[in-house]
Structure formats: structure tokens, C-alpha cells
Design a protein around this nucleic acid. Structure first.
Lengths: 339, 339
DNA sequence: CTGAAAGCGCTTACAG
DNA sequence: CTGAAAGCGCTTACAG
């Protein structure tokens, strides 16, 4: 019933080694006659033979599969990332298996282990680790690994990230220029994550350089809406509203807008808003939302190239510097000061 | 360097069969002494041994991996689906590898082939096929397969979908009750896809039963915004606007809102809007958007159960009826008629 | 209680 | 030009 290379060989009346050679396009190299090739391929087609990749992988030590581990694949940003990486991978004959960590360090470590046991050829990781030790060991031991979106300074692990700090600073400068003086930063927990951490610190620096210390609140990854609600509930009661808000990611901005409408507060009149990363609806709604965007396509293609490099050059594992990709400010209505 | 079962066996001084038994928790069953177990496990931990899943799979014929194939994993609906299925799979010890088809029939067939060659234990598929023949053959040949979101009537392939027709009808009835009489349906191409097809026909029926024939326009999957723009550009010029629009999915609704704002038209005053599937921002914006939602968690858990059933009962492949899950109307501001 | 052997389906030197 | 053999790292009857 099952059609294997043995069956093909038997039907054609040759050895399975020969069949393997023909199937893998090595006929020329081994000087196999065209006639033999044709006879083999005829039967291959007739029986619709497809080599068992598992067996092939076991033998060759290459699975043509890569792993993608992010905090949450249902998050639009990571979903788009997954799609782009999937396409890049497909073009190179790779499949991608995904995993979500929910920013949980142990879940991440477990996922890495599982994927390695499954013999993925490499991993693209948006890490939630605080400490990069385990990852460094992995990388130094020669396992192909590229970090995306989040990196570890001086860890020597190849990483491709946006200029998050610059992005935060750009947004801060924009708000400052507009005349806002009482900013609130909605940051995400855990705060050691490089991307959001740098967005926040880049933002803070611009204001502190102007003698203003922005308030920063930490919002747990898992309960964004409720915590933002609590915060504003308190601020409304105390009549202590900021004049502008920096949401370090999409989810935070969406939650903020939702909370604000609950309190019948308007953007930007009551509180202005800027956000990191664009979303389709940000340009549709009134007011449209000012954002800084990162070039996801560039991030993904750079990342994938770095991974492929490692996979094909198993021998020389080099230290890598982190690659920073520039971001872009898109000024919209949500951050324009009413005169 | 590489730590295999052979190395463990050697270090402990037993056979690799014994190590395998211990590792797979069959020590009791084979009456292996506790002492031996402890000695084995000690070395396993010491060397951080992880069984090579590829080898295990080749031997057992089970990969503990499932495939998920959808039109586009970056689409929020499918991204959420992927996440829920990932979690369900993880709980049962499965990994999921993803693939996007872009509604391309050949891409879908190719992906199925690739995943099967990789020995996935089963596939969850949101199909773009017009004809179910290939899929039926696969399923009847005993390959575990469950359709999600889209099904083929009378194909006998297990499928879990929303009550799309009912959803379209609910939305139509709501609009009719509000007094709208000139509806436009924004449908997606290819139109043979069951989900959007049934949403449209369910919608149409309610109006035609009331002697109104809704206009239906087909929007190609790949170029939603531009085509919607063209359509409304023409309608505005001809002063031939509908009084309400039914967007059969999220992307269409977002594109519609975007186009409308370009023409300075307001919802619902100029044109009302209802949409299939909710999005976080739909409840935030002014006006908020009326939708019908499907219970994605139920869809996913039902689907996953059906797949597991097939995987564990390889022998008896039964015909299956399609499971329809009820939908819910959420009335918001975008469909309320101004008196 | 434990070990030797076969075999999952491939690929790759090696020999002729 | 082609075949026999070894082996990738496991698991599972089978034998003792």
C-alpha cells in the first residue's frame, strides 16, 4: 500500500540507490543513462511517489524546517512576521513551525527544546528571556539562531531589530514640539524586553533633557485592558490626566482608546496619543493615530538571510553585531495640539 | 559530541532497548527494577539527553505534528485560529506547522503534499478549493483531515463552520427592520468559498423575500482596497449610493471604512455598515460597528477533537456531517437608522 | 528483569 | 553506469 523507494526500485528493476540518485537530480553527476532516468521517473509519477522527509532528514541530518517562536502568534505584528517568514522560507524550501510563549520564560525554553528535538535546522526567536545565557550557549554550540524584534546587548547572538530607542525619541520630540508637557508612557511588562524598554527610554530621554520626567506605568502583558482601565479610572477621579500618552505597542493603544471612550474623553483634546507600530484602522478613524512604524519586510528578510547563512556555514560561528533598522514617523491627528 | 540513546546505554552499561523503555515510561510494564531506572535517568539528566524525534517518528510512524493551512496567517481571524489550535495541540503534545495559500488552489495542493511528505499526523484546512475531489480522496484513503471555516456540502469530510447563512440573514433582517431598503453586499472572490458564499446568500434571501434584490459586488482577495475604492468612486459620481453595506469579512469592512472617509461620507448617515466577524477596534470607534461574531474557541476545540479522533482511530474512517456553530449579532451604532 | 536483532525509509560512500 | 551495504537514532517484538 505504502509507496516507498523500495517499491519503486522493485517495479523498475533497479536498486533503490539508483532511484534515490535519480530523484535527487544526481543522475548526471553519476552518469546514469537518460533511459534509466526516464524509466524511474515514469514509475515515480505513476505511483505518485513522494520521499518520506522524516527518513531523509534522519539520514542527512537536515530537516528543512525552521522554528519561529514569538510571544503570541495571534498578535497582528507577529502574525504578519510569521507570514513574511513563511514566504521567505517556502522560497528556500523550508517549512516553519510556530510557537507562542505568552512572554513566559519557561514556556520559551520548553518550546526551544521541543523544536530542537524535532530537529529544526534553526530558530528565529523573539525572546522573552531576561538573561541570555541559555541562548548564548545554544548559539555558541553552533545551533543556528537569530533574534528578531528583541535582542541582548553584547550577547553576540545575531539579531535584527528596529531602532526602537530612536523611535521613542522621535515620538517624544514630536509631542514636545507640539507643546505637550505632561506625558504618560504605557509600557508593557516584563520591562526588561529590549524593544519596549528602548522605546520607553528613548522617549524618556527627550523629555528629561527638557526637564520633564514622564510618568511610566507598567502594564502586564496578559491583562492590558483592565489595568489601563484602573489607571485611568484613578486619574480621572483625581483629575490628574496626562496631556499625552505614548503606547509602546498596538495592543496598548487599542486598549487606551477603548478606555478613553468609556470615560467620554477625546483624543487629542483631552489626551493626545502616539503609538509604536501602525495598524490598518489607525489611519481610518477620527482622529487618525500618529505612529512610528518599523519596516517589517526588511526585518524579516534580514533575519531570514542571517539564519540561512548560519545553516549553510555550520563550521564558522561568528560573533554578530545587532542590526538596527530605521523607523518612520507618520504624523496624524491624534497628536496635534489644539490651539 | 552528539548524545544519543547509544551513548546513554553505554554509559549506564545496559542495552539501548532498556534505556528506551525507561525513557518512555514503560519500565513498570516491563518490570524493570527501580534501581536500573534511577541509574538510567541519572545519566539522561547528566548528559541532558533528548530523544531525536525524527528517528522516533520514522520508527513509530507518528510525528506528533499537525499542519494548519489557511488562506493567510497574517489575517487576524486566522492568526487567532492558529494560536488557539497551537495551544490545543501543545496540550496534547503536538506541534503545528503552518501554511498560507493566498486562496490559490495549486498552492494549497502543494502545501498539502509538502506537509504529508513531512509526515504530519493530520491537517486542519480552511480550503480554497472549488472542487473537493482531491480532499475526499485523501480523507477516504484514511488521512486525518478536518475542514474549518469552509466546507463542502455532501463531501463527507468532517468540517466545523459557523452558521454563516444564518449570520448573513440575521444581519439582513436587522438592516431591514431598521428601514434600510437599498443594500450593497461586498463579497470576496473566489465566490465559491462556502463561508462568504453562504453569508451572502443568507443575506440576499431576507431581502428578496421582501421584494428587494441586493446588489452584490465581487472583490478579489488580493486587491481589496483598490477595487472597493473604484466601486465607490463610480457610485459617488453617479449619485447612486446604497443606504447600507454588508461586508462579508473584516478586511472588506476596514477597506470600506477607509474608502468612505476618503469621500467624506459618514457611517451610518450616508451609508450604514454591518460586518461579519468582530475586530477589537469595531467597538472603540465612532460609530461602533455592528457585527455578527462566530465562536472561534468552540470552532477550534471541536475541530481539534475531530482531528484527534481520526488520528487515534486510524482504522474506521466514517463519513461525517458538517458541524455548524451558532453566531451572535452585536448591534452597534453603524447600522442604526437616523430618523 | 535484560539484551540482541530487526527495521522504519531514506542517502552515501564504496566497489565493481 | 549500477548494486550491495552501512547507518542515521530510535522502538518493539522476541528470546532468554
Amino acid at each position: 500500500m505504502k509507496v516507498t523507494i523500495d517499491l519503486i526500485a522493485q517495479k523498475v528493476g533497479v536498486s533503490k540507490a539508483l532511484v534515490s540518485l535519480v530523484i535527487n537530480g544526481k543522475a548526471k553527476k553519476y552518469g546514469i543513462s537518460q533511459l534509466t532516468c526516464d524509466r524511474v521517473m515514469a514509475v515515480v509519477r505513476e505511483l505518485n511517489y513522494k520521499p518520506n522527509q522524516m527518513a531523509r532528514s534522519l539520514r542527512t541530518g537536515v530537516s528543512n524546517t525552521i522554528g519561529l517562536i514569538v510571544s503570541d502568534i495571534s498578535n497582528g505584528f507577529y502574525a504578519s512576521m510569521a507570514r513574511q517568514l513563511e514566504d521567505l522560507a517556502a522560497n528556500s524550501g523550508y517549512n516553519v513551525v510556530i510557537g507562542s510563549t505568552d512572554e513566559n520564560i519557561n514556556k520559551e525554553l520548553r518550546l526551544i527544546n521541543i523544536l530542537r528535538n524535532r530537529q529544526v535546522d534553526g530558530i528565529i526567536l523573539s525572546s522573552s528571556q531576561e538573561n541570555s545565557e541559555e541562548l548564548e550557549n545554544m548559539f555558541k554550540a553552533g545551533f543556528p539562531l537569530v533574534l528578531i524584534d528583541r535582542y541582548f546587548p553584547n550577547a553576540g547572538i545575531p539579531a535584527v531589530v528596529a531602532e526602537n530607542s530612536q523611535g521613542g525619541a522621535t515620538l517624544a520630540q514630536h509631542l514636545f514640539n507640539q507643546g505637550f508637557r505632561n506625558p504618560l508612557v504605557l509600557n508593557i511588562t516584563p520591562s526588561y524586553i529590549s524593544s519596549v524598554g528602548e522605546r520607553t527610554s528613548g522617549f524618556q530621554k527627550v523629555f528629561t533633557d527638557n526637564s520633564i520626567v514622564p510618568e511610566v506605568v507598567q502594564i502586564p502583558f496578559s491583562d492590558i485592558y483592565n489595568v489601563v482601565y484602573e489607571i485611568f479610572s484613578k486619574k480621572v477621579k483625581e483629575k490628574n490626566l496626562p496631556d499625552c500618552v505614548f503606547a509602546v505597542n498596538n495592543n496598548l493603544a487599542t486598549a487606551f482608546l477603548s478606555v478613553l471612550s468609556k470615560f467620554n474623553l477625546a483624543v487629542p483634546d483631552d489626551v493626545a496619543l502616539v503609538c509604536f507600530d501602525d495598524l490598518p484602522y489607525f489611519s481610518i478613524i477620527k482622529p487618525s493615530i500618529t505612529v512610528v512604524t518599523q519596516p517589517l519586510d526588511v526585518l524579516c528578510s534580514r533575519t531570514f538571510s542571517l539564519l540561512m547563512e548560519q545553516i549553510s556555514n555550520q563550521e564558522k560561528v561568528e560573533e554578530h553585531e545587532t542590526i538596527f533598522e530605521p523607523v518612520t514617523l507618520i504624523t496624524r491627528e491624534s497628536s496635534i495640539k489644539i490651539k
